[in-house]
């Protein structure tokens, strides 16, 4: 039954993309939990992850694993820079949510344009992490990059779960999510947690960008669609729950894959955005979440 095979094939690749959306969604949650801020510049981390790795690979001649590692660290640092330069001055002054959104959106544009100046407007891609033949189960081919995506994503989610449950910093961040004032009174450096959440979130975004780039392409302007997909994932998961965001990402990926089957590949972002609108209207608290 070629029809069924095709459908399963599509779903498999949808799950793969979904992992990526999940990681980006977790990035939204990490910052939101630590500070109550929704960082609209989240997409640049994804874009920069792929772009910086590409630059290190082609211009500096680094091997891929090293290039990826350096890129993740660099993007985490850029996350801290955004936090220090844009977010913290506004946060200190208790700027309104709208101002924060606008400022992070402006930061998105600035970084996009800087990337455009530095790297040009041509789409770039990365080689697969390993060039083994795709895994074949029945008539379904699972690309090796997809396995990389699944493996790294699950590993990261597990590591994050441990981090938030076991480490001092992770617990402090959870305390901030529950009640920032109380956390501050308990001696938790809330402002430092904000910086840390940006670094963590940016690193996650960069990993997502590096993982997905070999299967698609990256360019200076891929950030916003990724950010919106990640935001949808976070909303599906009830905004704030990292695991929920991850599950939401997978659901979005699958829904998008189905939309591609139905309407063609060109409209995948339109499909994702329409899902966002429908969800916002029907169930703004997400699939699992309670009303805010």
């Amino acid at each position: 039954m070629p029809e069924t095979t095709f459908l399963i094939q599509t779903l498999v690749s949808g799950v793969g993309t979904g992992f990526i959306y999940g990681l980006i969604g977790i990035g939204f949650c990490v910052i939101y939990n630590a500070s109550g801020i929704v960082n609209f510049a989240q997409g640049v981390f994804v874009m920069l992850g792929g772009m910086i790795t590409h630059a290190l690979l082609t211009r500096a001649g680094l091997p891929l694993p090293l290039a990826a590692l350096v890129a993740v660290v660099a993007v985490a640092l850029i996350g801290v820079v955004i936090e220090r330069a844009v977010v913290r001055p506004l946060w200190r002054r208790n700027a309104t949510m709208f101002v924060m959104i606008l400022a992070t959106l402006a930061a998105q544009i600035v970084i996009e344009r800087l990337t455009l100046l530095a790297a040009g407007d041509q789409p770039k891609t990365l080689p697969g992490f390993s060039d083994a033949a795709p895994l074949r189960i029945g008539g379904i081919a699972i690309g090796v990059q997809l396995l990389w995506i699944a493996g790294v994503s699950l590993l990261l989610v597990g590591a994050l779960a441990l981090f938030f449950a076991r480490t001092r910093t992770g617990r402090a961040m959870r305390a901030c999510a529950i009640n920032r004032e109380a956390a501050a009174l308990m001696g938790i450096p809330v402002a430092r947690m904000l910086g840390f959440s940006f670094a963590l979130s940016a690193g996650l975004g960069a990993v997502a960008g590096i993982l997905i780039t070999p299967t698609q392409y990256t360019a200076f302007n891929v950030g916003v669609p990724f950010a919106i997909s990640g935001f949808i994932a976070a909303i599906l998961g009830g905004f704030g729950s990292a695991l929920g965001a991850f599950a939401g990402g997978i659901m979005l990926g699958v829904a998008q894959a189905l939309a591609i089957v139905l309407f063609g590949a060109g409209f995948k972002n339109v499909a994702a955005l329409s899902i966002l609108l429908l969800f916002l209207l029907a169930r703004p608290a997400g699939l699992f979440g309670k009303a805010h």
Partner: peptide, 21 residues
């Protein structure tokens, strides 16, 4: 009917949808 982040993201998505189309 939406407020805050949701309204912001929904309108942002609207702009993106039309641009994608």
């Amino acid at each position: 009917r939406l407020r805050g982040h949701y309204l912001a993201m929904a309108t942002l998505a609207l702009g993106m949808i039309v641009q994608e189309i």
